[in-house]
Design a protein around this nucleic acid. Sequence first.
DNA 1: CAGAATCCGGCGAGATACTG
DNA 2: CAGTATCTCGCCGGATTCTG
Lengths: 153, 153
Amino acid sequence: MEDGTSKALGYCTGTEDDEVIQWDTRADCDVRRILDRIADKWSLLVIALLDRRTMRFSELRRAIDGVSQRMLTVTLRHLERDGIISRTVYPVVPPRVDYELTPLGISLHQVIKSLVTWTEEHQREIAAAHEAYDRRVAEEERELLQSTARLSR
Amino acid sequence: MEDGTSKALGYCTGTEDDEVIQWDTRADCDVRRILDRIADKWSLLVIALLDRRTMRFSELRRAIDGVSQRMLTVTLRHLERDGIISRTVYPVVPPRVDYELTPLGISLHQVIKSLVTWTEEHQREIAAAHEAYDRRVAEEERELLQSTARLSR
DNA sequence: CAGAATCCGGCGAGATACTG
DNA sequence: CAGTATCTCGCCGGATTCTG
């Protein structure tokens, strides 16, 4: 846990050449953490769901449907540690735990939204790029096969 | 390769309940791809570096310093397939390959920048959250140990 | 120089079983 | 209900070796 933090710091402070790079390599340590968090398979879903209201563990589990209880726990712990969500335990039987976005989490959600918007706006371009790329690769493969056949005859 | 795409599509279209979730689960397929890309350990660096100018393979390799040639290749292929960067091969000896951001890549870089900005603006809050969380966990651990000791005596 | 191919070690994620 | 604990297995990423 703590050694992960220290390792990240060491890695970042260990940048010996500050010639070309300006904001990215330095920001790497912090940016990477956040990016890894929001790019995490489940974090996005959790943040999106909690944007509407506070939810219980099993509620999230059912809503996401596909997440293992372990990964949901891990995800929630990470988000909590980052201050993105808050966790409230009610000392009742049966146990009840509520999760909700913190102000920090809400502001993060705004940024994420803009990213999602960008993606939605450009998904056709990306899909087209995929097609073009795959077609080009297939074409090159065919040419390669033909030239090989030409050599062997 | 291609089965990955079909699998992702199948996974996404396989959402049977459209009750609570609105933009995220549907966007999951496309958003996830982009997020996985920009959250990828090296993609960010590549995009940031290419923002300034076109670069050769070995230039990127040297600039990033820490990336293996394999991962750089994989990263570049992914970005190329997504239409984020373009790859230009010059048929000369020794071989020369230039990489540069496409218009799509440039626009993505803008969005990423805003995310980085958010991160930079909130890194202190996040660090504080980390400290608070770790302190709280340590505290609970201590209490647990004390109650255990109390029981055993 | 710019990769492709291969092998391999670590760890992240799933499944299962157990607790308060 | 809301988790922990443990085990296993897949695959991701690094190192190495080989081409055009």
